[in-house]
Design a protein around this nucleic acid. Structure first.
Length: 185
DNA sequence: CTCCTGTGTG
DNA sequence: CACACTGGAG
């Protein structure tokens, strides 16, 4: 649900969804049409279809739970690099890196600061940075903290550089306040 | 217009 | 590599 969709918009739907489909088995037993209907208005309607397929595949092949290795997770349609890392680190506590839009922005601003942050060439490098920072322990908290840092401090629109603990090493430099997003005249 | 805890496709 | 996919908010 969170793929390219804001948290505030997902939370209510997430609760509603889990109440109706508490387990992968319950989801697998549902009709895909109903899953798509309850999904509205989150958008990207290929996602409920794929989630439903993932639930069925998990029940049929993996005993009703998600596999806990990257290769098998990635074999599902709808689970890419980010979601695989998120499932591994958040659900299974494995030492796996993540790179969502938040982390990508943080890595780019703090360690790169130049070039197009959306280019694939750079994204490869941003993944390396995220992997390199990954601690041995407390991976769940680290990854979650990294994302929350991007979601609350190093935000896309008005980053809070003033209280930012990384401001002194940031390659991008202070861009907070009303200056953020403004064109350079 | 850009952005949002992306992914599969051509 | 670019792009479509969905819809809402700033």
């Amino acid at each position: 649900m969170l793929q390219q969709t804001q948290v505030d918009r997902v939370v209510p739907k997430y609760k509603q969804f889990l109440k109706k489909y508490p387990t992968l088995k319950a989801l697998a037993a549902a009709r895909v049409r109903d899953v798509i209907r309850i999904w509205y208005p989150l958008g990207y309607n290929i996602r409920p279809r794929r989630l439903h397929a993932i639930a069925r595949e998990s029940v049929a092949q993996y005993g009703g739970t998600l596999p806990n290795d990257e290769a098998t997770l990635r074999s599902f349609k709808g689970i890419g690099a980010y979601t695989a890392g998120a499932v591994l680190s958040f659900a299974f506590g494995r030492r796996a890196a993540i790179l969502d839009t938040n982390v990508a922005r943080v890595m780019y601003r703090v360690f790169v600061g130049a070039g197009d942050p959306r280019s694939h060439a750079l994204r490869r490098h941003l993944w390396k940075l995220s992997e390199g920072l990954l601690p041995r322990r407390h991976v769940f908290d680290f990854n979650q903290g990294l994302m929350d840092f991007g979601a609350t401090v190093c935000t896309a629109r008005r980053p809070q550089c003033r209280p930012c603990p990384l401001a002194h090493i940031c390659r991008t430099g202070p861009i907070d306040g009303r200056l953020a997003g403004q064109r350079k005249k």
